[in-house]
Each structure stands twice: as C-alpha cells, then as structure tokens.
Simulated scan of single mutants.
Amino acid sequence: MTADARDDGKPYASATGTQLQRLMQMAEARPPLRTAVVHPVDVLSLSGAVTAARGGLIEPVLIGPLGRMRAAAQSAGLDLAGLQMIDVEHSHAAAARACELAAKGEASAIMKGALHTDELLEAVVSGSSGLRTDRRMSHVFVLDVPSYPRPLLVSDAALNIAPDLSTKRDIVQNAIDCAQAMDIVEPKVAILSAVETVNPKMISTVDAAALCKMAERGQIVGGKLDGPLAFDNAISLEAAKAKGIRSPVAGQADILIVPNIEAGNMLAKQLFYLSNAQSAGIVMGARVPIILTSRSDPEASRLASCALAILVSQHKPNKHVR
C-alpha cells in the first residue's frame, strides 16, 4: 500500500492485523537478517534473539561471555543448537566485535542485549568502528496507536537530548528513510512545538520553520514537511480545521518530529500507557540498522523491531544532499 492510498483516511493495517503485524507481513517473504546480538547474557535479551531466529526474522550471531550466555539459555530453557556464538570477555568487547562484523559485511544489523545503550552506541560512533556516516544517528519509534489510522513514527525520543538545527535535519531525514522502507512513499512530517506560529522566543518554532525551508531547497528529501504544529493539529483534521490550518500534513501526519528528548519520551510513553500503543524501534544513521529494545518491551515489539530492521537494511533511499 502506498502513501496515496492513505489520503482517504483508511488504515494501513488489514482487517486481520495491527500495524506491527503489517511490518511482520512485509518482512516475512525476505531472508533472515544476519544480526550481531551484543552481550545477550540475560534471559530477556537472549530469548528475544532466539525467538526472532526461530521465527525466521534474524540469523543471530550471539556475542558475549560463553558461560553466561549458556547459563541464561539453561535458565530460560532455550536451545542454542545451530546458532553461532562468539566468546568474548565482557560487554565492551562484545560491542566492539559486533561493530567489526558489521563493518566487514559479516552482519547486516546490530541488536542490543544486556548492556547500556550508551555503551553500545559509543562503540558504533567510535572512529575505528567503520560504521559512522556523515549523518547523525537517531532513534525512530514506529507506533501502532489503536485510535490512529496509520503507522505513527516518532523521533527522536531516545538518543539526541537537545538537538540543534543540523541534528534535527538528520533526525528528519532518518525518519523519512525509515518510513519509505515501510512503503510510505512520501511521508507527511509534522515538526512539533507548542504553537502553530513562529515565535522567536521559542526556538523549536524557529527550527521548525527552518526545516520546512530546508526541505523546499532540497536539503531534506522524500517527505512533505510542515511546522511548527502543535500535537493536536498534527494528528487531528478537526483540530487543524478549527485553527484554520491548511496543510497537506496537518491532521494526517505519518511522522512526528519532537523538539527534544524530554518531549519525545513523554509523548511516546503517554501513547504506550494511556492509548495502549505498541511500538517497534530502530536506530538510523549508521551503516547498519541498530535494534534497541527495552526491558519492558513485549515480544511483539521485539519481533516487529527485527522486521523493521529487515526492511531498513534492504531499502535503498533516494540520493540525499549529504
């Protein structure tokens, strides 16, 4: 289904599934993604990788202290037969080895195990990793919100604390690339703030206007941008009409770009806990997709994140300015 098919307000998901199931359906006909799983030494991270492997989503390379991985498998009743395992001393070494495999083309994605996100990403952004690009890395949530008729992407709610304009440009482009990998051909991007007009005292509104102009000048490609937009005007046609906002984005956004990590974190968690939203998540901007999962993520979210990584890894984005 393409972006054009969305304009009538009908949902992306089929009558038999959710937005996350749609991701799974898109990925199921594709070969499993060879994935370096970093330090899966607890039951949760190891079982997530094994479940994704048994489901045909990934071909995992389990990297960590061999004894701890086997102990976790025994505790969870998991069979690791047939899965490749690389023995390293600790989590730092596991992250470095995963980056090495990805840089050599021996892994097409990286999955976070039982280590801190900062520790994993420090290895990725290291000058010696071979995984850095000229794009700033950013996290993208793909949300299935039951009351919203299409997938809703939110960025960045996990990595960049207080992004400046240059970083926001990369956040927007990463999110567009992610949406296009999901067959959203020309995603509608709402740059969020608290108001709909540019106020020099509110830097998020100035950045929003600048990002829209950057898109007009070809510095951001592949999506339709509008902003500043308040949250209600980004996702509700009725609210946008009440404010007199005429826009191809307002009321029907595919992507919400938040002004900072606090706003993004609160927005995503409100949707999780008050609207029963489910999510997949991925880090964009490196040479391979990075699957970040939270300890609180259900199995459906973990599997959908693997499916999303498959789509992103096989997507060839349009040429960008940078």
Rank of each mutant, 00 (worst) to 15 (best):
D118C: 00
S236V: 04
L78K: 07
I291Y: 00
P259G: 03
L225A: 00
V312E: 12
V50D: 11
G113K: 09
H315F: 07
A49P: 09
D118G: 00
P163V: 03
H90A: 15
S305G: 08
I245Q: 10
I282C: 11
H139G: 02
P146W: 11
L57W: 08
V61Y: 07
E59I: 00
L101W: 06
A162M: 10
I245M: 07
E238Q: 14
A239C: 05
L153R: 09
V37G: 11
A94H: 12
A157W: 01
A3T: 13
D4H: 05
S247E: 01
D207S: 09
D170E: 01
G64Y: 12
Q278P: 00
S91P: 01
E196N: 15
R302Y: 01
G82C: 05
L23W: 03
A103T: 11
K316S: 14
L115Y: 11
R135H: 15
P40C: 08
C99K: 05
A157Q: 02
D207G: 02
L308I: 00
D118E: 15
I191Q: 11
H315A: 01
G130P: 05
N260D: 15
D7L: 12
I58D: 12
S129G: 01
R302S: 02
P11T: 09
A157K: 00
A208P: 10
T197S: 15
N260H: 08
L274N: 12
L225P: 03
K241W: 03
L271I: 01
D226I: 04
A304S: 08
P149E: 03
D207N: 11
L192H: 02
S155M: 03
M266I: 15
L20M: 00
A263W: 03
Y12V: 11
D177P: 04
R132V: 12
K168L: 10
L131E: 08
K112R: 15
S47N: 13
H315V: 03
D170H: 15
D4A: 11
A179V: 00
A175S: 15
I63C: 14
I290R: 00
A286F: 09
N318G: 14
L46T: 06
D183G: 04
I261F: 07
S108C: 01
L33R: 06
A209W: 02
D42V: 07
L303K: 07
Q219D: 12
L159H: 06
I176P: 06
M284P: 06
E28P: 02
V172D: 03
L115H: 09
G9V: 04
L237H: 08
G127M: 05
E100A: 08
S204Q: 12
M24E: 02
L83D: 10
L131N: 10
D164Q: 01
V195Y: 03
P32Y: 14
A158K: 10
A114H: 15
A102C: 12
I235A: 06
A123H: 11
M69S: 01
T18V: 07
D87A: 13
H39S: 08
S91V: 08
